[in-house]
Write a protein that binds this DNA or RNA. Structure first.
Lengths: 327, 327
DNA sequence: TTGAAAGCGCTAACAA
DNA sequence: TTGTTAGCGCTTTCAA
């Protein structure tokens, strides 16, 4: 049953033709008479032949794997965003007969990525997140391997796909401003992430003229709690959270302190996910499509692997979802 | 700079020895004089030689990749458990110069896994979750490839690592019973998951004599809400949640309904994670070490790939964490 | 339109 | 202790 040791030679012998012809029939490259082509394909179908990826890889210097690089702390990795995005990548990759090799980057330590690159274990890489001085991007550039980043970067000549965070955050912020908010606080995560900076800028531009306070690097709960304490003490009218994880922490803190939303303070988030979507009251937030983003990243990468030169920057849209948390 | 086209032939020529000698120096197999061995290694070090994995793979029929199979719905994948577990796997794999190929299984659809197996893209597989009639296990057995499951299974001859869910859940349940609880409800997820069944059994055994109600297949929020409604109507004294995700839903529902914990109902969870750990009040739960589990699974798999015959069932411990949610 | 033959870079008998 | 020689299974010139 499991006779999957069938090789291209076996087929050639069986059909009385050469390996070359078989190879060509499969790949579709070169001229082949429709007749023999069909003979080969039929035989393959019947005998359940599966080409050997390693052999093909060695001959063509290809692995048919693509690298997927994500932050290596479980708090990050577990974020709905990366998971959704990855599912989009997998969808597209699978259809093109590629598989995903996963690598983690933790605290600017890119050893895992370096190993994968040095060992030539992937044909291209998708970077799940961009940092301001991103060592991963540097390494990828140096390696010469095709790669695309999910998230923007200032680095030159980097193919990138991203949501339009700046516009989205600016739009949401300005809507909040129009609601008559006089003072707002922005609680955000690590400022070495490009997306954090974009959101901050969107917030600031949208809130132009409003009294604002910015709390950066609130990655852990204590920091979030402290930021919320400070914001409430300063009688902020609205807390805007940089992402779902932070919003989750903010909601927990407000609940603990018995602060009512939206009567005592309004809350909005620049990223939505299942982490907060069932909250009572519902949270005003931005909606993106990370799965579509992942799919686009993968499509782009595959085209690069095929030798095409893709658009450098692709932006995906968003939606503003106004809910009860901001009146 | 990027002269990484150095091959074993180059080294041999450069050093005036044969490829074989070089190969042996690297692998450490066969007899080699310390002197030449050192010469080769020094040369390699100096010239930054990196062996070609594809070539080695083709020659040895190995890929130096291991497959990591997880549920393909983002709600599941994002669970802290799988992420932590994966980080454990990656740690061990990386040290042994293996990489992780990720594959998803969604709703008993194992096509992704099948492709990876047929294409021989991995040397072994770690299954992140076990189902009662697990098609993945069947496929893996049939393929003959080494694999280990994270989670138990009834299938014969399957190497498996797991937490001791039964004992853990039974212990927690019996502690709750000792606290004088007269009626308890168990809210659980899909009953095709082996772990769900184990936890249920632990609950039932631990609660022996107590008036209990079981709610199975509560994977979505509506179902959780309905279960909670029913449980509260039946004046349950304690809601025991099968995992963190469900507990999260239960807590949200109780909050929405203004039910006080633990005064109006006690709550416990059979799995802890960041999803619920900051809850007020703190939730009584079980603590496991999924990262250690992943690491153990990977170590076991690697030993199997090396041809060893490992222990069939390995169990990791747990801790009962009694918190304010159960008095 | 087809085939022969030379690799891709490494490992592993078998000899020496 | 080291080297010679076949492969691993596929692709790809170059010829026919």
């Amino acid at each position: 049953m499991t006779t999957d040791n069938l090789t291209i030679d076996d087929i050639a012998r069986e059909l009385g033709i050469s390996k070359t012809t078989v190879s060509r029939s499969i790949s579709g490259k070169g001229r082949i008479s429709e007749k023999t082509r069909k003979r080969v394909l039929d035989f393959i179908e019947k005998n359940n032949y599966k080409p050997n990826f390693m052999a093909r890889g060695l001959a063509q210097s290809r692995t048919f794997n693509i690298g997927w690089v994500v932050p290596g702390d479980s708090e990050m990795t577990a974020l709905s965003f990366f998971q959704q995005c990855m599912l989009g990548v997998i969808d597209v990759a699978t259809q093109a007969d590629y598989d995903l090799l996963i690598t983690t980057v933790f605290d600017h330590n890119i050893n895992g990525l370096l190993r994968v690159l040095e060992n030539h274990k992937v044909d291209g890489v998708i970077l799940g997140q961009t940092l301001t001085h991103d060592p991963a991007i540097r390494a990828l550039k140096k390696s010469g391997i095709p790669f695309v980043t999910v998230g923007s970067t200032e680095e030159k000549n980097v193919v990138q796909v991203d949501h339009d965070h700046l516009s989205a955050c600016k739009e949401l912020a300005s809507i909040l401003k129009l609601k008559g908010i006089r003072s707002a606080s922005f609680i955000a995560g690590a400022e070495d992430k490009v997306v954090t900076l974009a959101r901050r800028r969107g917030f600031e531009e949208g809130m132009d003229g409003v009294n604002t306070t910015i709390y950066m690097n609130c990655d852990r709960n204590e920091e979030i709690d402290r930021a919320v304490d400070d914001a409430m003490r300063s009688k902020t009218e609205c807390i805007v959270c940089e992402d779902d994880r932070i919003c989750y922490g903010v909601l927990a803190k407000l609940k603990k302190d018995g602060v009512q939303i939206p009567s005592q303070v309004r809350v909005a988030s620049f990223y939505n996910s299942s982490l907060i979507e069932d909250n009572q009251p519902a949270i005003t937030s931005l909606w993106y499509d990370p799965k579509a983003l992942g799919a686009m990243a993968c499509r782009t990468l595959l085209s690069m692997i095929e030798g095409e030169t893709p658009v450098q920057r692709q932006k995906l849209g968003y939606e503003v979802m106004l809910k009860a948390s901001t009146l």
